[in-house]
Structure formats: structure tokens, C-alpha cells
């Protein structure tokens, strides 16, 4: 009986796999999967993982500088969560890569060499405390929208990681709202600080969801991801959701969106807005953003500096095995 199951041809396996996908079943790490499903997951999840880890860096700048004791503790916990999300996602990616003989070391090396990209927003500068607020409120808000879409991902381990992550993101968004509201309700200086941050971050926030269609920046993997039910919505769907949720809120607290044209078109049932510079986007995600080099260096330096620690404990294992 077991042999019979194994004697399926690749084509039959693929057929059965697609049936499982169509039926809404969850695929697990040890299950048979077509190579391009595995590749699509590795691409998506390893990028997501390193984005969380790189994403900790711009906010980390504000951990010791956070204005009060309470804010210091809260942002420490928030950045810690981001590292924790990186950990969860790395584990998911690592299990997918294991059959290919690759592990965490390889993911990190790909990140350092620039082969593995991380999210555009984490290449940006975060020069003021207002930026810490915008990151927690709107970048995390955008992340909640994209991540929620994949809570029902066909890949079980990814969906489970996202469930843990989304639960914590709710705290992050509130942490962000609390910073933002303190600033918008504060002195003229504070209001100016937060307005400047919003103006600076707006194009990056639009870019966060990726281009509307592949014409904007060349190849895109969205369609394949939809076919395999790894994701269920297009980039534009998500961006529109972001507008629905945040444009009215941003305006209600007296902040000005740096786009004179943005409005909701009743007829089309969608937001009309000024496109960000997609050439700039391409430049940023290929590692030529304002802080790309510095942030990667920070991570690379620290990884190299602590190599002796990993060597020491790895060797200790070898020693004990004898």
C-alpha cells in the first residue's frame, strides 16, 4: 500500500498537490511539493524573515533615545518582537531549504552579499523620534495588512508563524498610535516633527506594497503566489486597503498627506493617488537606498564579530560527541 503511494509519477504528484491546494488543505514542511512552490515560498519567506531582522535596525536607533522610561521599555519590547518575528520566519524558511542542503548561515550570507533583498522601508533613514512613531504606526500597519492576507496561506508553517506575528503586531500598532497621538496633541515642535516624518515616509509607505503590475518594475511573482494560495490579494488590493484604513485616520489627527491628488473615487470605488517613483523603488530594493549600505554593514560587522561565539559552541558539541 505504501509503495503504491510512492510510485506516483511526478505529474501525478503535482496533480494531487494541486488538488490539495484547491481543496484548501495545508501543506506541511515534509510534504511533497513542486519545486517552484518551494522556491516561491523560500523567496517570499526568507525575504520576509530578513526584512524583520533588518527592520529592527532603524527602530533600534531609537531604543535608547526613546524619550521616557516607559517609552524606552515599550520600544525595546517592540523591537525585540521584530527580532522574534525574524526568528519564526527564519525557522520556516530554514525547514524549506533543508532538503536543498542550506541553512540559516546561507540565508544570512545571501543577505550580506546583497543576493537576498529586504523590504524597501528598511533602507530608509529614521532621523527623528517621529520616525519611530511612523514606523510603528504605519509601517507596522501596512505589515498587518499584508500579513493578514497570508494567515490562510496554503503553507501551514507560514500561516502558523503569521498567527503568532499578527497577534503581536496589534500591540505594535497601538504602541505606534500612542507615540503619534502624544506628538500630534503636543507642542508645535512635536507636531512639526511628526508631520515631517509622515512627509518623508509617505512614498516609502506606498512602495511597501510593491508595484501595481509588473510593468512598473519588471518581473513579479504575485500571480504564482496567488495560484498556489500563498497569498490571496494583489499589491494594489493591499494598498487600497491601507488607504481605506489609514487615510481618514491620518487626516482626522490633523496630519497632511504629501499628495494633493489623493481622493476616493466613488465611481471606480478606489483611491486615486500619485504614484511613487518606481525607479527609485527598484534602486532601493537592490541595495542602493539611503541607508542600505550602513544597515547591512551593521549586521555584517556584528555577525562577523560574534563568529567566535558560534564556533566555540559548535566545537563544544563536537568535543562532547567524542
Amino acid at each position: 500500500m505504501l509503495e503504491m503511494a510512492q510510485s506516483l509519477t511526478e505529474e501525478e504528484k503535482y496533480h494531487r498537490f494541486m488538488e490539495r491546494i484547491e481543496a484548501g488543505e495545508r501543506i506541511e514542511a515534509d510534504d511533497w511539493m513542486p519545486d517552484d512552490y518551494r522556491e516561491a515560498l523560500i523567496r517570499l519567506i526568507s525575504m520576509h524573515a530578513v526584512s524583520e531582522i533588518m527592520g529592527a535596525l532603524p527602530e533600534k536607533e531609537w531604543v535608547p533615545k526613546a524619550p521616557t522610561l516607559h517609552r524606552k521599555l515599550a520600544i525595546m519590547a517592540k523591537v525585540q518582537d521584530e527580532m522574534g518575528h525574524g526568528q519564526l520566519l527564519l525557522r520556516v524558511a530554514e525547514d524549506l531549504m533543508k532538503p536543498l542542503g542550506r541553512n540559516r548561515e546561507d540565508i544570512l550570507k545571501d543577505l550580506f552579499s546583497g543576493k537576498l533583498k529586504f523590504h524597501n522601508v528598511f533602507h530608509m533613514k529614521a532621523p527623528t523620534w517621529g520616525d519611530a512613531g511612523i514606523i510603528a504606526w504605519l509601517v507596522d500597519g501596512a505589515a498587518i495588512i499584508t500579513q493578514s492576507m497570508s494567515l490562510n496561506s496554503s503553507y501551514g508553517p507560514y500561516a502558523r508563524a503569521l498567527q503568532r506575528i499578527c497577534a503581536e503586531e496589534v500591540f505594535h500598532a497601538q504602541h505606534g498610535e500612542s507615540i503619534i497621538l502624544a506628538l500630534t496633541e503636543g507642542t508645535e515642535e512635536q507636531k512639526k516633527m511628526i508631520q515631517t516624518s509622515l512627509t518623508e515616509w509617505w512614498p516609502a509607505l506606498l512602495m511597501f506594497f510593491g508595484p501595481r503590475s509588473k510593468e512598473n518594475v519588471g518581473k513579479s511573482h504575485v500571480n504564482k503566489n496567488i495560484k498556489y494560495k500563498i497569498r490571496t490579494k494583489t499589491n494594489e488590493d493591499l494598498r487600497q486597503e491601507f488607504f481605506n484604513k489609514y487615510v481618514p485616520r491620518i487626516q482626522s489627527i490633523g496630519l497632511k498627506i504629501p499628495d494633493e491628488t489623493i481622493h476616493f473615487n466613488e465611481e471606480k470605488g478606489e483611491w486615486i493617488y500619485e504614484q511613487p517613483d518606481w525607479d527609485e523603488f527598484k534602486k532601493i530594493v537592490t541595495g542602493h537606498g539611503p541607508m542600505s549600505k550602513e544597515r547591512l554593514e551593521l549586521r555584517t560587522t556584528s555577525y562577523e564579530n560574534t563568529a567566535w561565539v558560534r564556533d566555540a559552541l559548535a566545537n563544544r558539541n563536537v568535543k562532547e560527541a567524542y
Binding site: 529592527a56 524606552k72 519590547a77 523591537v79 525585540q80
Partner: peptide, 29 residues
């Protein structure tokens, strides 16, 4: 300790060390 955040030898350790720093800063508070 909080300056180490994101720079520890190991990602799992980064998370663990941060909790210790939060505890300790909480005690200072």
C-alpha cells in the same frame, strides 16, 4: 544591554537578552 539589540551572536539570543534588559530597566524604573 539594549545597545546589543539586533547584534547578538544568535537571533534567538537576541530575543532572550532583550527580555533581560527590559526586566533590568523595569527594576531601575
Amino acid at each position: 544591554g539594549s545597545e546589543w539589540l539586533g547584534l547578538a551572536p544568535h537571533i534567538e539570543e537576541d530575543v532572550a537578552f532583550s527580555s533581560i534588559n527590559q526586566d533590568t530597566m523595569g527594576h531601575a524604573v
